[in-house]
Nucleic acid binder design. Structure first.
Lengths: 345, 345
DNA sequence: ACAAAACATGTGACCGTTCACATTATATAA
DNA sequence: TTATATAATGTGAACGGTCACATGTTTTGT
């Protein structure tokens, strides 16, 4: 298959200089006379020459490409983080090779192929999901730059960007307590995941600070899906537990919970207050507009890309953990607890 | 910067064969004796050798990488299509380099950088948005494979995957007509875009087939956002127009419309039926669960990747236009028109 | 005015593969 | 047995850049 590419040497012969001089021009090096530079630039324009990044990677040993591995692309949270990481990476001359691995066993081949393509480093979203971070440990040992993003294992000596999930859980719970609620259901994510544990810890902390006693039966583990939360609420109602508010660890579960409440004839927020987590798009158009915890997703991507690129470029880069804040967004799904007793079916 | 890579020659010398033989083994060529193959494979395993895809690209003139350019990554529609394209591409040994260009003027530099990286071809989402497809015309002329995905210019001689938007618009409208509605508002996307025009054409066709006369004032142009639809409905109500149903060209606008109706004290579907388009996630949890038109997003990605890879691999590949179907999803936002007159405020 | 430093440019080797071709060993046929 | 096809392996030259170094030309300092 005959190739048909304009090379640095074609430019050189047209401009009547050596190929090295052309290389100097395209890399914006000093030590090129203005006249020569102009000649070369004209030749480049005339031939519509494009430097071959592949050949450059070959010679330099850098691909200026980052591998980004996430559970999927369709979850808004991931998409948003990847998008902002991409923006930041591109600003610094890097591209991102995306790969989704829906389960842990698909992570290994993905890493392998990205390694073959000689990505300069890895951006790993939600490494704690199904313990997929275990696959990156060998890479980190070999000195390949890796940055964990969101839901990160806490104890690892790895660069990471995470959110202060404990505070997030605390703020959410605190908000409900302040409104006078005392019996607050919390639906967590899988307890194997760091962020679920943290948000639950925040919930506990808020209770213990307020001195209000905590009903352990009201903490239930979901799987992030609306469906799981719906079932949990249904069970809770059936079991005769008493509560006036719900804190779900993501918005999807809030939606599922609200649906279950409505199916049971309860109104949100008049009968039960609900607070979510994430602030996904259109959730403000929900009925009722959901009060929730907002995370700075763009900062995740930006910091993540930055950290990774720094590690790629500086051999003696020190690992760093960044922790971002979370913010309460008040809408209409939480109101003051103002009735004689909790709901009981 | 000293590199430290295991190469084909390291493997060769350990296995005591020539580097070419190693190449044959890793490429699974015939003409290698089983004994030699085994020796080489052992050496590969021992050294943890990884073929350098960059060097391979260099030699072969193919990168096995596709450039994917979309307006963003956060829109579920795009994310889903890209994710499925990625899955299909990877199945065939390709990777996807993603790039978002929020506006047309950002497309050019993105193409440039992808071209420098020698992507084998381009996957272009929504080329009709702000006429970004114009940037790809020169590439297509040069013979670089390009596939358009969704909202494609109809008349181009380019491979593309689109949806039968006219039928989609027809089915949606037809559904409302069948329920007895006669005054049906439609909120379109920007009329500069192919798919908006098509869906509107379907709306017209359904009316003309039914023989019911059409009130031109009820066709209004939105910008795909919930907000725009909200304003449009508000204006319509204020102007005293009469209608009993709404067909919005995407789900977000349906949500905005429903909110505006509710704010005006109207109930959906009892007072006004609403049908959307897209079937985005969680929309079935909305109040009321939205009746909408579903598009086979995964097929978009799959076909798109396939078409592009075929074009990349076969020099004499013929351009092909794929058109996918759309499907009515009935939920609870549309009911029979059963009252004496239309709503009038 | 002359040595030293700074600038401008060119040459050869290399990055890690694959390709086309050459060579050698082995099997098949007459 | 010898000619001939076939299998197994090796060699040199690409692919398109960058790096280190060599060379020639100016500028600068005293």
């Amino acid at each position: 298959m005959p190739r048909f590419q304009v090379t640095i040497r074609d430019v050189a012969s047209l401009a009547d200089v050596s190929y090295q001089t052309v290389s100097r021009v395209i890399n914006n090096r000093k030590n090129v006379s203005p006249a020569t530079r102009l000649k070369v630039e004209e030749a480049i324009a005339e031939l519509d020459y494009r430097p071959n990044a592949i050949a450059r990677s070959m010679a330099k040993g850098h691909t200026y490409t980052l591998g980004c591995i996430s559970p999927n692309l369709t979850n808004y949270i991931f998409a948003r983080i990847i998008e902002s990481a991409q923006t930041e990476a591109r600003r610094q001359g890097f591209f991102i090779l995306t790969g989704s691995a829906s389960s842990a066993d698909k992570v290994e081949p993905l890493i392998d192929e990205m390694l073959n393509r000689r990505v300069d480093g890895f951006l790993v979203l939600n490494p704690r999901d199904d313990e997929r971070y275990l696959h990156f440990l060998p890479l980190i040992e070999k000195g390949i730059p890796v940055v964990y993003l969101k839901n990160t294992p806490k104890d690892e000596a790895v660069s990471s960007v995470s959110c202060d999930d404990k505070t997030g859980g605390y703020v959410a719970t605190q908000h409900l307590l302040t409104l006078g609620h005392q019996s607050i259901v919390t639906i967590t994510g899988p307890q194997s995941e760091e962020c679920s544990q943290e948000r639950l810890a925040g919930y506990h902390q808020a209770f213990s600070e307020s001195g209000i006693s905590l009903n352990e039966n009201l903490s239930v583990e979901g799987d992030w899906s609306a469906k799981s939360a719906g079932k949990i609420i249904q069970n809770l109602l059936d079991s005769g537990e008493t509560f006036s508010a719900i804190f779900t660890q993501n918005d999807r579960m809030a939606i599922g919970a609200i649906r279950a409440l409505q199916d049971a004839g309860l109104r949100v927020p008049q009968d039960i207050s609900v607070i979510g987590y994430d602030d996904i798009p259109l959730i403000s158009y929900f009925a009722p507009p959901l009060t929730t915890i907002h995370q700075p997703l763009d900062d995740f991507g930006r910091h993540g890309a930055n950290l990774l690129i720094s590690a790629v470029m500086n051999k003696d880069y020190k690992r760093k953990q960044v922790c971002l804040g979370a913010q309460l967004i008040q809408r209409d799904s939480c109101v003051e607890f103002n009735r004689g007793g909790d709901v009981r079916i």
